[in-house]
Computed example of a mutant assay.
Amino acid sequence: MTPGNDFDEAAEPKLFTALLTPHRSLSRTGFLALMLFVGGVSFIAGIVFLMMGAWPVFGFFGLDVLAIWWAFRVSYRRAGDTEEITVTPTELRVRRVSHRGQVVEWVLNPLWVQLDHVTHEEFGIEQPFLVSRGRRVSIARFLGPDEKASFVKAFRAALQAAKRGPTYNPLT
C-alpha cells in the first residue's frame, strides 16, 4: 500500500458526539447561603427548645444541618461523573467516567444497535438504552425528560445515518 492509500481511523467522520454531565442547579455560593440559612434556623429553633428545658433537641437540630451538608457534599462530588457517546459509521462508543476516575467503556457496532426507551405517560422518556445482542446499556441518565427526548431524536438520526452508510462526494 502506498502512504496515500492508508486507512486512517482518525479520518472517520463523527456522526454524533455528546458529552453528558450531571446538572447542578445550586452553585457553591447558593450552597453556602442555603447552609447559612438552614444552620441559622436550626440554631434559633434549638435555642428555643433549650430555653424550654428540652436541651437534647438542640443537638438533633445540629444533626439535621450535618445531614443536609453531607447530602450536598455527595451530590457535588458526583457532579464529576461524565458520559461520552460517539457514533461513527463503523462504531458506537459509550464511555462513562465516574467521579472516582473509574472508566467503563462499551464499543458497539451501530448496525446491530437499537435505541429503546422506557416512557412514562405523564413525564415522557424516563430511560433510554441501547440494545445489542441481547445486552442493554443505559444511556443519558443525567438528563431530564425534555432533554432525553431531544437527545433520543438526535441520537436516533445519527444511528440511522450510520446504518445508511457513508456517503462520498467525489468532488471534495
Rank of each mutant, 00 (worst) to 15 (best):
T29H: 07
P170Y: 07
G39R: 08
T29L: 09
E122S: 05
S138W: 03
A149K: 13
G101N: 06
P22T: 07
A162W: 03
V41K: 02
V65C: 07
H117Y: 12
M52Y: 07
G134W: 13
T119G: 01
N5A: 13
V38M: 13
P110D: 01
L66H: 04
F142C: 04
R96P: 05
H99K: 04
A10Y: 09
V152Y: 03
T88Q: 06
G59L: 15
Q102T: 15
R135T: 04
F72A: 05
G134F: 09
M1V: 09
F123M: 12
K148Y: 12
L32G: 10
A158V: 12
V131R: 13
W55V: 10
S150D: 15
F31H: 02
G4C: 07
D8Y: 08
G30K: 05
V104C: 01
F37M: 14
Q160W: 05
F151Y: 10
V152I: 01
S25T: 13
G39C: 05
W69A: 15
R133E: 14
T88R: 12
V41D: 05
A149E: 12
S25G: 13
D8I: 11
D64T: 02
A33D: 03
G80P: 06
R95I: 05
V65I: 07
A79W: 00
E122C: 00
H23W: 10
H117V: 08
L36E: 00
L15G: 11
F129D: 01
A140H: 11
S98G: 15
A67R: 05
T119C: 03
E83S: 04
F123Y: 09
V87W: 05
S27Y: 10
E12C: 10
G53V: 00
V103H: 03
L32W: 14
S25F: 06
M35H: 10
V41F: 10
G124T: 08
T172W: 06
H23I: 07
L111H: 08
V137L: 13
R164P: 04
N169E: 13
D146P: 09
K163V: 04
E84K: 06
Q114M: 14
G4K: 15
S42R: 00
R78H: 11
M51P: 03
W55N: 01
F37D: 00
A33I: 14
M1N: 11
E147L: 06
V65L: 14
A162H: 02
S27P: 00
L92V: 06
